[in-house]
Computed example of a mutant assay.
Amino acid sequence: MLEPTDLTARAISELRTRFGTEAAVTGRAPGRVNLIGEHTDYNAGLVLPVALPHATYAAAAPRTDGVIRITSAQEPEPFTGHVDELGPEIEGWAAYVAGVLWTLREAGLVSGGLDMHLESSVPLGAGLSSSASVECATAVAALGAAGRTLDADLQRAIVDAGIRAETEVADAPTGGMDQSVAVFAEAGGALLIDFDSGEHHSVPLALGERTILVTDTRVKHQLTDGGYASRRAQCEKAAADLGLSSLREADLEQVETLGDEVVRRRARHIVTETARVEPTVTALGEGDWASISELFAASHASMRDDFEISVVELDLAVSTAVEAGADGARMTGGGFGGSIVSILPSEAVETVTAAIDRAFAEAGHNPPGHLIATPSAGASYTAC
Rank of each mutant, 00 (worst) to 15 (best):
L7A: 07
R16S: 07
G37I: 06
E38I: 10
D41V: 06
L46W: 14
L48E: 01
V50C: 05
V50W: 00
A51P: 07
P53L: 06
A61G: 09
R63N: 03
T71R: 12
T71Y: 01
G81I: 10
E85N: 09
A94Y: 01
A98R: 00
G108I: 10
G108C: 10
L109H: 09
S121G: 12
G125M: 08
S133Q: 04
V140S: 02
G147W: 11
D151M: 08
D151F: 01
D153V: 14
I158R: 01
D160L: 12
I163R: 10
R164V: 13
A165Y: 04
P173Y: 07
D196S: 12
D196I: 04
G198E: 13
H201L: 14
L205Q: 09
E209K: 15
T217P: 05
S230P: 04
Q234M: 15
E236Q: 14
A238C: 06
A250S: 04
L258Q: 13
D260K: 13
V271P: 00
V271D: 03
E273K: 08
E273F: 03
T274W: 00
A275G: 15
E286P: 07
D288V: 15
F296P: 02
A298C: 04
M303A: 06
D305C: 05
D306E: 10
I309M: 09
E313T: 10
L314D: 04
V318N: 05
T332I: 05
T332M: 14
T332Q: 09
G334C: 10
F336V: 10
I340W: 02
S342P: 03
P345N: 09
V349L: 08
D357Q: 14
A359G: 12
A363G: 07
I372R: 14
S376E: 11
